[in-house]
Design a protein around this nucleic acid. Structure first.
Lengths: 341, 341
DNA sequence: TACGTTTCCGAAAACCTTTTATTTTGCTTC
DNA sequence: GAAGCAAAATAAAAGGTTTTCGGAAACGTA
């Protein structure tokens, strides 16, 4: 047994020291009810002197609010959930709300277990962060606390979800290439069964169409999210259209592989081929040669925003629907306007 | 306001339904005290029928145990804290203990704030996970709850810390190269002011010395943790000793850069130069050409172990000192025994 | 003085569980 | 059938806070 704790100071002690009843002390400390300024000051002084910290358990027991939210990540070994999670944590942590972390590791059964645990602990709300932008099953059904979904939207449109706006982001990426004067733009991306891959293709094609430009190679080159695939895709793209002058990649991994392979085949980046990636995964995007122009999904901001909305919902101001958060192009050398010398 | 919650079912309801007093119901459910088997069954049946879940707040209020631990990460934007944190979460989450996540983001002031918050919430223990293996200030001083440190050890030897055994790991890495028949082994690593860099160099040099081999180039090549530095270091190493036949790198980023540059200078990996990395950061180690043999620090296991020890400490079985956890060599093609054809 | 208004304060209930101390029950023994 | 005893059940306290509601004090007015 750890040594006997030195019995924490309670509101009783504060009240006694201030010479008032505990009711008055409570009201003074919480700024509720009628209490004379002079009395309030006395109470505060006493609380400070004893360095009183109200016992949140007792408080929660009576108010029913725990000032705690559950953060349910479906699979955080992956890469995208982490920043979202940290953004959310940041938003809550700077306030009074604490975050209970639960990583279900992609296991629906474990998710159920955690959900029960969190409900038993009387959390005030729940934030569910996913690992891909594919919609995920809703858990909000007959839950009496608010839930928001981040990164992976809920499949129930009644719920509130925050996802990156991949369609707009990809449009921006392609428009950037067009603005740089590129006219033969290809698109290499991940597996077609990912919502992210499909939406990014949609945005890219939309921007090309709006500019009256064809897609180099005529078809979106779907494959995998890996660097290996990027290297392979470089050949496909170059064979399909030897005069291709830009490639928009669905991920930084793909872009890194593609740049490497293009370089080995003697194409200069960005002079011969401009390349834009997606994700701004800095270990890659800052280390390619040249460094990668890429789309940043602002995942921390996304998490933070989701957390703020959950907070609003807890206070009764609920929203609903899927909110698409803007992405931001990070311009590095692989696709940049000419720098004046 | 969210719709009125449908007043949760309490142990009173269970007791009433089972036709016993709440004291008996409590004892029956917790398996404490003397209660007839038949009565216990009745209580359990009632609890099940009402799907009773005890209110942990009320329970904690009386027992003083919250079944909650704080997870204080000093800077989780970095890469190494995350797996440790997830490992810890996993260890707790599978039990009854919940994890309060606090990310201090490398800010000592914020850390203090979180520490106060966690103590106010009466957590049963604290796990502090760092971002590098450099020792960090202890926070255990006159804290009445147990604390364990993971990845970054505490600077107070009285505390209990879990860190990767980089000295032994590096020794293994170099011995692996020696076993492959390499005799001119160089070591490229990060900045000298990192404990990790110094310890890995120490382990590497020790293994060389024990085998009676010199260090290729005569000196450890300290620099940065980046891929860029790896590329640059390749030149240094090759110039210092053109016949170098193996390089042990202090990180996968360095190794990736080094492999790339060596390849461009016409050296074949692993035939001419075998390369071993450190970290097993899979986005790099699986994507280099050839895939990278590298040292995995088992960070999740480390986090899990730390969590288990915290648990033990909470139950009164405390340990102390710095525990060095073994690393594990992941053999891929960049330094592998010849495969039989 | 009697009375109505404010303004401030405090007693006590409520939140839900565990635990201690006490009472009741059921059984054995003489 | 009473006494004694162990086993089983319960009443009540404790844990720390918020909140309701009634009461006291202070003050002004008739």
């Amino acid at each position: 047994m750890p040594s006997e704790r030195p019995r924490a100071v309670t509101i009783n002690d504060v009240a006694a020291l201030a010479g008032v009843s505990i009711a008055t002390a409570s009201k003074a400390l919480n700024g509720r009810g009628q209490v004379r300024a002079e009395t309030r000051d006395r109470v505060f002084a006493a609380a400070r002197e004893l360095s009183f910290q109200p016992n949140p358990l007792a408080r929660s027991l009576v108010t029913g609010q725990t000032r705690t939210v559950g953060l349910l990540t479906s699979d955080s070994v992956g890469r995208f959930g982490i920043p979202v999670m940290l953004g959310a944590e940041d938003a809550f942590g700077s306030g009074e709300t604490a975050v209970l972390l639960c990583d279900a590791r992609g296991d629906a059964f474990r998710e159920q277990h955690y959900l029960r645990t969190l409900l038993a602990r009387r959390v005030d709300g729940l934030i569910v962060v996913g690992e891909s932008t594919d919609p995920r099953p809703s858990i909000s059904r007959d839950l009496s606390i608010p839930v928001v979904y981040a990164y992976a939207p809920s499949d129930d449109p009644e719920d509130v979800s925050f996802v990156p706006d991949d369609v707009a982001g990809s449009g921006d990426a392609v428009r950037h290439l067009i603005a740089l004067g590129r006219r033969r733009i290809a698109h290499v991306t991940g597996p077609t069964h990912y919502t992210a891959a499909r939406e990014r293709a949609e945005g890219a094609l939309g921007a090309l169409k709006a500019a009256g430009l064809p897609l180099s190679g005529d078809r979106v080159v779907y494959g995998a999210w890996s660097q290996r695939w990027g290297r392979h895709a470089a050949e496909i793209v170059l064979n399909a259209d030897p005069d291709v002058d830009a490639v928009f990649c669905g991920s930084d991994q793909i872009a890194a592989g593609l740049i490497e392979a293009a370089r080995e085949r003697g194409r200069r980046v960005p002079d011969d081929i401009a390349v834009v990636g997606y994700d701004n995964w800095e270990v890659l995007s800052e280390e390619t040669r040249p460094p990668l122009t890429t789309m940043d999904m602002n995942l921390e901001l996304l998490g933070r925003t989701a957390a703020q909305h959950l907070f609003a919902a807890i206070e009764g101001r609920a929203t609903s629907g899927v909110h698409r958060m803007p992405c931001r192009l990070v311009i590095r050398d692989s696709a940049a306007p000419p720098t004046p010398r």
